[in-house]
Amino acid sequence: MKTDDLVTMLATGADSVPPNQAAHRYAAAIAWGALGAALLMITLLGPRPDLPAAVLLPMFWVKIVFVGSFAAASLLTALRLSRPGLSLAGIPGALGAPVLAIWLLAVIVLARAEPAQRATLFFGDTWNSCPFLIALLSAPVFVAIVWAMKGLAPTRLRLAGTAAGLLAGAVGTLMYSIHCPEMDAPFIAFWYLLGMLIPTAVGALLGPRLLRW
């Protein structure tokens, strides 16, 4: 087939294309992924028993705002990397700001605490399960985000896979924080982040294979 014939073939009967498909796909993927993560959280872990009292504490909302703003920055990153030729300007700052903020808070909390208490602030009661449970809750979100990306056109597959993992990790963590009893910034700043980095590493590893088109 000659190139001119291919051009004619592609143009013939080409329908109009609905706008904003990236936004629609991501909205659907996050909704389904978050639903999956919520179901996993409710059936396997259950919300923390003192949830009604916890939502009145500022630290609960610090947690939510940290994870939420990290999720928003990862969503922006994933949206940019899902389409060809978009710039990543501003992305490192958007991802770094919430992390730096929680680290700063963690340092302040640790500095002002009694030396004997510092280990408890850092390890809490659940450090050995927290990152893995976050990774578990991220799994359905990861599948949904990869589906969204595959319907678009990422050209930098490893970076795109990484962004998919970050976003999945952040949404999974948002659900996990409804179960998680930990309320100290040093714990959040390390173990939550570590949990989110597990799906991120998986995404970086699998991106080139999963997202090729």
Binding site: R83, P84, G85, A153
Partner: peptide, 16 residues
């Protein structure tokens, strides 16, 4: 469907 009307067309074409 992945072309963003706000983006330079060349950047999109060349990336693909």
């Amino acid at each position: 469907h992945t072309y963003d009307a706000g983006q330079p067309l060349t950047a999109w074409i060349h990336a693909i």
